[in-house]
């Protein structure tokens, strides 16, 4: 992993090379996170490139990406480690006879107990440990980028459990003790704000809010992602989407949807936003029937050149 970043500009230009166009806020967050070794909490509406940011950062730092997708009911066993219960049980059964051999000449119960204790924690050793993403990230030799995606979907307990990891880069496993990170990972947490995260978590993180991009930035993003698109069409497209976002919609079009739409328009060989083309392809942008209806009604206004 790259350890030193010279400046915010370096982040920005490297991200741009990867096709991730970002503003100063985002580049600064990555820069500070890498310099201060602090986790970053990324919030914002869905589809503004929160997850992409972690991927771009991993590519930029030349580090492996470890991803943990959160969901309701996620617990330590899925996130950190699990014992291979099946294997443990299988081994006890297979070793039953061996056990008899070992204990065969012990005359009393106490002697057998002592002999058993002499074998140590054979069944709670690394052999039977199934590492999950968090433990993988901690045990990785090369400092990885750890992406904890949609942390707001996980429960309160899990959030509390993460606190130790986020502040000291270590976790406690009851049977093994404390596992400290071999190399400190760069952590990105993303949240769609379906619930308020705890203050304790926020305190430990840098906080980045990514809003929908403004027109100019969105144009640049389209240019980077769909290079074959015509410049004037790109301009119209960004204007259209930004006007669309000002409407009262159930779900606002995300950047990813804008890109999909741009690709579709290129495939259709469109060179300008004609009402018929928009009408036919609007579904790529708006996913709710009500939104479609209200957007269609407003179409002339939305398409009006500046």
């Amino acid at each position: 992993m790259k350890t030193r970043i010279a400046s915010v500009e370096e982040v920005r230009s490297d991200f741009a090379r990867q096709g991730y166009i970002c503003d100063d806020d985002i580049a600064m967050a990555v820069f500070l996170a890498a310099q201060l070794r602090k986790p970053v909490l990324v919030e914002g509406p869905p589809g503004v490139g929160k997850t992409e940011l972690a991927k771009a950062a991993a590519a930029f730092l030349n580090a492996p990406l470890v991803r943990l997708q959160c969901y309701e009911g996620l617990d330590e066993a899925r996130a950190l480690y699990e014992w291979k219960y099946g294997k443990q049980l299988l081994y006890t059964q297979l070793l039953k006879e061996k056990l008899a051999d070992v204990l065969g000449d012990a005359s009393t119960l106490e002697a057998s107990m002592q002999r058993l204790a002499g074998f140590g924690d054979a069944f709670y050793s690394e052999e039977f440990l199934q590492p999950r993403p968090l433990l993988q990230a901690l045990r990785s030799d090369d400092p990885p980028v750890l992406l904890i995606d949609e942390i707001d979907k996980a429960d309160q307990e899990f959030e509390a459990f993460l606190l130790e990891l986020l502040s000291d880069y270590q976790v406690s496993i009851p049977e093994l003790g404390t596992v400290t990170a071999r190399s400190e990972p760069l952590v990105f947490l993303t949240s769609n704000n379906t619930r308020e995260l705890s203050d304790a978590l926020k305190r430990r993180c840098l906080h980045l809010y990514i809003p929908f991009p403004d027109r100019k930035l969105e144009e640049q993003i389209i240019a980077a992602r769909v290079p074959e698109i015509d410049a004037s069409l790109r301009k119209q497209l960004a204007l259209f989407v930004s006007r669309l976002r000002q409407m009262d919609l159930k779900k606002q079009p995300a950047i990813s949807e804008t890109i999909d739409w741009a690709r579709a328009l290129v495939l259709l060989n469109a060179d300008a936003l004609a009402p018929e083309t928009v009408e036919a392809t609007l579904r790529l942008l708006l996913k709710h029937e009500e939104d479609l209806v209200s957007a269609r009604a407003e179409l002339p206004r939305l398409l009006k050149p500046e």
Binding site: D75, D155, R195
Partner: peptide
């Protein structure tokens, strides 16, 4: 979100 369902695992 404290009222959690099964804690499989």
């Amino acid at each position: 979100r404290r009222q959690q369902t099964a804690r499989r695992g």
